[in-house]
Design a protein around this nucleic acid. Structure first.
Lengths: 353, 353
DNA sequence: CTTACTCAAGTAAGCGCTTACTCATCTCGG
DNA sequence: CCGAGATGAGTAAGCGCTTACTTGAGTAAG
């Protein structure tokens, strides 16, 4: 639009070289106060703002970090009312980036163009936070050769990438122990998400840990599997019930959506929750507190994950030789009524809304 | 990380000039198929990906669009469970940008650094979508001299900016007419948001339109004002009730949060909704359908706004001389039970969840 | 056999910064 | 008074692309 001025013009008008202007703009040293003031004044006067492409070309850094996540649409049909996982992560990431003076570029990997997109984004940023599920392991490794990458919400299987994850295992351990100890239940069934999902596996592992720790024998494998969705939960529950002669005392679901589907399936069969069967979920989506009964579940620190991932990434960018970091963020059990508790209270640091 | 190859190396290895490589990469013309294949092959072989800073410096375009919005935190205390307005807009914007092969940079204007941030983002992108409320009119005009800007969810008062807005007025008109015609109510009170808010004003105007069209006299000004929050709605309602000898037949709120606060205030006074007073909101936040009674309200096409704004912006970038565009997207009334309707149904194109 | 195009491709001048070097002064201890 | 540092500032070579302009060969028309 407007005729933009360049560093040359600023330099000329303030009677210094471009090097000095550049130094002043970067708050470096090697100039007097008088010079600084003069340069700043003419810059302001001209309305000059350094061209970002030029400076990032010369300095080899862009001051932008990228965030890659799976297509939004994947979640759309699940619960478009809850702030999606990615929404919260984006908010956290934006906050952390902004606090460090960086900008954030976001991109959803949709369909097959994952790697292409990743490269395209990678060429625009200093580093990438990749939400697990956006890229295959092979793609991840390719991209990470090009630019620093932090994996979010998953743990890299073989690569040496930095990662930030939530403590799925401990969260499920806590909720299982609650059923075992507080409610004195012992016949617990586990309805898992997709068997390839690392989250699902970790959660099942936490469930088993708790059983073992409580002196019970843990099952070899989950009692049923399904997609991490409402309908996945409903059909897995139907399957579970048919496969057993009697109802379990509790059904522990791999996530909230499945638990919601399970609740519907149980209701359809005239089973009362929590009187006949206790139910728990995982994630603490918005709907969890609007259900009847309200859902006992585990909350993940989603926004915090986003912030942390960006911080880890920025540290990695600053020092590529630093030791690798893998952070596991704590989760919090949220006790409501589906587990059999009467009062709504929770073991968290925040109030229940 | 890895030693990156440059266009020079690709050119040398495939025995052509850099100009040809560049042409091939941009799918231009002026080269034979054989040459194209050769170039593409060596590029792949070398794992070469054009440096984005260099190409945007040379071509004067970045292929990135920016999205500026007010600080997330502003909304945090309102209803962190509903997907925030900005979340949906971000999703829409990302989708539209990605569909056009552009990337999207997001930034929240927090505190006083609005203009500074805007300039910083502006220097990294080809154009900016600015969510109303992120920048003052003066800042907006400054930034728009530098880079194309589309205002989202608001209409520029004096500038000639392109904008995309939702039809607040028609939405409120519809819901008011519903109270007037379907429910045969005539004594309606209006509880508005902040008086400087353009949205609030438009909504009040729609309310007045409907009254007038229905043969009633519209009030000069809203019956009460408050912040667009739950507590704002509660106190405005208290105020309203105290100022009147009798309850109105209906209270039309400027948005859902206020209506929720109003519902609580009415309940606290033992007023039954909708039996004694009908209530309506605006926005259709997630909580609206979980309330008792469920809230009759108006839905805004938030995601679509984000998409449209980016599309308008891209068109503006492509043709700076094109006539100015101002789009007003339709809103949809969502009838639930707080207005007095028994059945939950709605006048929308989507199903009610 | 010219003339006039068309087509494939090359030349090289930027784009607007950053920064390694270099240089001229100035300061100050010995 | 001299030499060693410090300090303030300039020189100029990139950074890795894009693109206006040019070139030369092939080709159709006259």
């Amino acid at each position: 639009m407007i005729e933009r001025s360049t560093i040359y013009e600023v330099a000329r008008r303030s009677g210094v070289s471009t090097a000095t202007v550049s130094r002043v703009m970067h708050e470096g040293s090697g100039f007097s106060e008088a010079t600084r003031d003069r340069v700043l004044a003419t810059a302001r006067e001209l309305g000059w703002i350094p061209n970002h492409s030029a400076s990032s070309l010369a300095a080899r850094r862009t001051g932008i970090v990228g965030l890659l996540f799976p297509e939004f649409g994947v979640y759309d049909d699940i619960d478009s009312d809850s702030p999606l996982y990615v929404d919260l992560i984006i908010r956290g990431a934006e906050r952390a980036a902004s606090a460090a003076g960086n900008a954030i570029l976001i991109a959803a990997t949709r369909g097959r163009r994952g790697l292409e997109l990743a490269h395209s984004v990678a060429s625009k940023v200093d580093g990438l936070v990749v939400l697990a599920g956006s890229l295959s392991a092979a793609e991840l490794s390719l991209v990470s050769q090009r630019v620093p990458v932090v994996l979010l919400a998953g743990q890299p299987r073989r690569s040496r990438l930095d990662f930030v994850d939530a403590d799925n295992r401990a969260g499920m351990h806590a909720v299982t122990t609650h059923l075992l100890s507080t409610h004195k239940l012992h016949d617990l069934a586990f309805v898992a998400g997709p068997s390839r999902s690392p989250d699902s596996r970790e959660r099942f592992a936490g469930f088993c840990d708790a059983l073992t720790a409580g002196g019970h024998r843990a099952q070899e494998r989950p009692d049923a599997h399904g997609a991490f969705t409402v309908s996945g939960g409903a059909s897995a529950t139907a399957e579970l019930i048919e496969a057993r002669s009697a109802l379990p005392q509790a059904i522990v679901y791999g996530n909230d959506e499945m638990a919601i589907g399970g609740l519907a399936a149980l209701r359809a069969r005239g089973v009362s929750v929590p009187r006949e069967v206790a139910v728990t979920g995982f994630d603490d989506i918005a709907a969890a507190r609007h259900m009847h009964p309200t859902l006992t579940t585990v909350r993940q620190p989603m926004r915090e994950s986003g912030e942390t991932a960006v911080r880890v990434l920025l540290e990695r960018i600053a020092d590529r030789e630093a030791p690798r970091r893998g952070l596991v963020l704590p989760t919090e059990m949220v006790i409501r009524t589906s587990c059999g508790c009467r009062r709504r209270h929770q073991l968290t640091t925040e109030g229940d809304r």
